[in-house]
Write a protein that binds this DNA or RNA. Sequence first.
DNA 1: GACTCATGTCACTCGTCGGTGACATGCGCA
DNA 2: TGCGCATGTCACCGACGAGTGACATGAGTC
Lengths: 207, 207
Amino acid sequence: MAKDSTETRARLIDAVGRVLAQEGFEKIGVNSVAREAGVDKVLIYRYFDGLKGLVAAFCSQEGFWPSPLELMGGDRDAFARMPYAQQLSEGAINYLRAIRARPLAQEVLAWRFLVQNELTTAFDSVRMASGAEVVNLMNVPTGEHAVDYQALQAIVAAAINHLGTRSGKLKDFSGIGLQDGSGWLRIEAMIHTIVYAVLDEKGPPPA
Amino acid sequence: MAKDSTETRARLIDAVGRVLAQEGFEKIGVNSVAREAGVDKVLIYRYFDGLKGLVAAFCSQEGFWPSPLELMGGDRDAFARMPYAQQLSEGAINYLRAIRARPLAQEVLAWRFLVQNELTTAFDSVRMASGAEVVNLMNVPTGEHAVDYQALQAIVAAAINHLGTRSGKLKDFSGIGLQDGSGWLRIEAMIHTIVYAVLDEKGPPPA
DNA sequence: GACTCATGTCACTCGTCGGTGACATGCGCA
DNA sequence: TGCGCATGTCACCGACGAGTGACATGAGTC
């Protein structure tokens, strides 16, 4: 035999994605993944030093998480020049769209929010770094203001985390249908409305 | 023996709460609960028709979920007379406080958001009914308005769900410390700000 | 006393889990 | 040709999960 081991590694990584999509995060284990990959489970230990390493490799795949550039809308310089309200509104909406477009990342993220174990901690660093890079480019107004920017960001981010991570399973939330795009457009419009209303600025019309 | 079976039932229900508090929702099983209760697991099947029934009984305990009255702030008539902005703002804040005050309900709710299985569906009806009762009393403005009330409610509720269900484990969110009360006050104030800013009304000063 | 029945204990099956050691195979190299 | 090593297969272990059937005990009833 002695095939190419890189193919076996790829088969295992792909199998993680299939188990994640079909069975969910909680069903991920050395037995189920190896079975799905058609490969002996001992190779998970040999090539990835256990399930933790395999999941980390899976989540490190190109494009698995939204890139900072994607959250900025594709143009880093343009984002850096935006006023704060526009940065927050568009960044939040881009974040929501990015999560909605990634069902597997939704699943992982949802579990990361709920439990913190050796599996979920494997990819925290990647996620954190990505978010921090965007936040660091935000032109948060300085000086004394009446607006609690951190609190505003926290609420917007929390709402998106909840809606985004559940978007794959959620048909309806608070009377808004989320199966087609129209419901999500209403959510996005309201994010825009909230940000500009709280910051008391006249913004560009919603995209 | 032939003791009183109601005591055994109570021991089992209490054991669910202890396992939930100490080990988390995922560790709840017939073996762990029976061991914690100091009782044979076969009694779970005999008295509650399985784990599902036991968990349903646990979640049906008085005060486990916030009551509609609690979400309304304790005075149903006063709530019914409030303008919509005040209803939404105060109702949302009451909801957040109610969840924060119930670590076990947080745990159950968080799992209900993530997975939908025979365990979590057991108590959906109770939860749904409670929320609907409050929503039905809301004086949503009629006629044509520019404000998408459903979307506003959805975002506020989503943010509270995310922050509330994680409040027990979360030390910090978006730079806001959530261990003492001051961070939560900022969150509550921002909920108030958002609601009144979007609805473009002058509200009472934040409590 | 004899019977019924609820209560509770015990032992067991069967499946899955994470993890490990032994072994077969085949490639590259001396 | 023979050696080392990476690759891959197989069988097994102990632990724990849900669920079930058999049996002991004791209280109330006729």
